[in-house]
């Protein structure tokens, strides 16, 4: 079911955070030309004017913020795109605590905190996803589970696709869009978001690969490798024997075409891939004895 394209002049961007490090939020803020501010002010041709609803950054707080989520979840507000940063905890790992439940972005007055059992993040996501024009997982935690899903972490987490199911389709006719990377460059997020808007307005269909990543951004293969060191590593690297991962950084750099991991002598740890800590970190160690 596609919504009417003409209703997409004003769109809210509802950004939720699970278990993560906030790095994807920073990456999003770093992008410019266009940046999130250009979308907020409606400066991007053919993209809607965006209202950012973010736990740290939006203007509303407390009950007002909760009201925004509630209206979006019940379908009485402007159309919206849902973004998740961070992994979703499966079991609440904190007995008696109040974390991993959304109460308010800033604060709420209540009679007694002990009777206070607000809905969990996963519950909110499920309600919002049912109404969202599109749903985006930013970063490897939301796309695959990331660091919290690594061996040893003692956490049981799931990705956004795990929660919504792999057959999920948004109101705008899209599956969960993955923008993996730890973190992905912010520009990659903004660019994908704009293409999601163009898809929703039925201008250009969104081209996703089999991992539901924007195909044109993740089609470059890079080799997980150690950083550049000025002493001889114990072994040479036979690239034909090495795995590759898809990554936008060889083309985009990190920000405004500056930097970017192996482009400037850093390591590639394969951070856009599933379970990168367990699968690729060993290929990126600077200690010659271990390579």
């Amino acid at each position: 079911m596609q919504s009417e394209p003409e209703s997409l002049d004003e769109v809210s961007l509802i950004w939720m955070t699970g278990i993560g490090c906030n790095g994807c939020t920073l990456a999003m803020l770093e992008a410019s030309d266009p940046g999130i501010d250009d979308l907020i002010f409606g400066n991007v041709p053919d993209a809607p004017r965006v209202t950012l609803i973010h736990p740290e950054l939006s203007m509303e707080s407390g009950a007002q913020y909760l009201g925004l989520l509630e209206r979006a979840a019940s379908g009485t507000s402007a159309p919206f795109v849902l973004v998740l940063e961070g992994a979703l905890p499966v079991d609440l790992p904190n007995p008696g605590g109040v974390s991993h439940v959304i109460t308010a972005a800033a604060g709420e007055v209540t009679e007694s905190p002990s009777t206070f059992s607000p809905p969990t993040l996963a519950l909110w996501i499920e309600r919002l996803a049912a109404r969202a024009e599109a749903v985006i997982a930013i970063g490897s935690c939301a796309s695959w589970g990331g660091i919290p899903a690594s061996s040893g972490s003692a956490l049981h987490v799931q990705s956004l696709s795990d929660l919504l199911g792999h057959h999920y389709v948004s109101r705008g006719g899209l599956p969960v869009v993955n923008i993996p990377g730890c973190a992905p460059p912010g520009q990659v997020f903004i660019e994908t978001l704009i293409y999601v808007f163009l898809h929703l307005k039925q201008f250009v269909p969104l081209d996703l690969d089999e991992e539901r990543r924007p195909r044109w951004l993740y089609r470059h293969n890079v080799y997980p490798l150690p950083p550049r060191v000025e002493y001889p590593p114990a072994v040479g690297f036979d690239l034909s024997q090495r795995p590759t991962v898809g990554c936008p950084v060889p083309v985009t750099g990190w920000v405004r075409n500056i930097g970017g991991c192996t482009k400037v002598g850093g390591s590639c740890i394969g951070c856009t891939e599933r379970d990168f800590v367990d699968r690729f970190l060993a290929l990126a160690r600077p200690d010659p004895a271990l390579n």
């Binding site: 770093e30 990190w254 850093g266």
Partner: peptide, 27 residues
Amino acid sequence: RIASEVTTLVFGRSIHPTTLFPGGNGI
């Protein structure tokens, strides 16, 4: 954003740098 570029120029990226390791910097 300008400050993030300062970090990016020497750390390869501003979020979770990839050029640093014990004993040096890959750039």
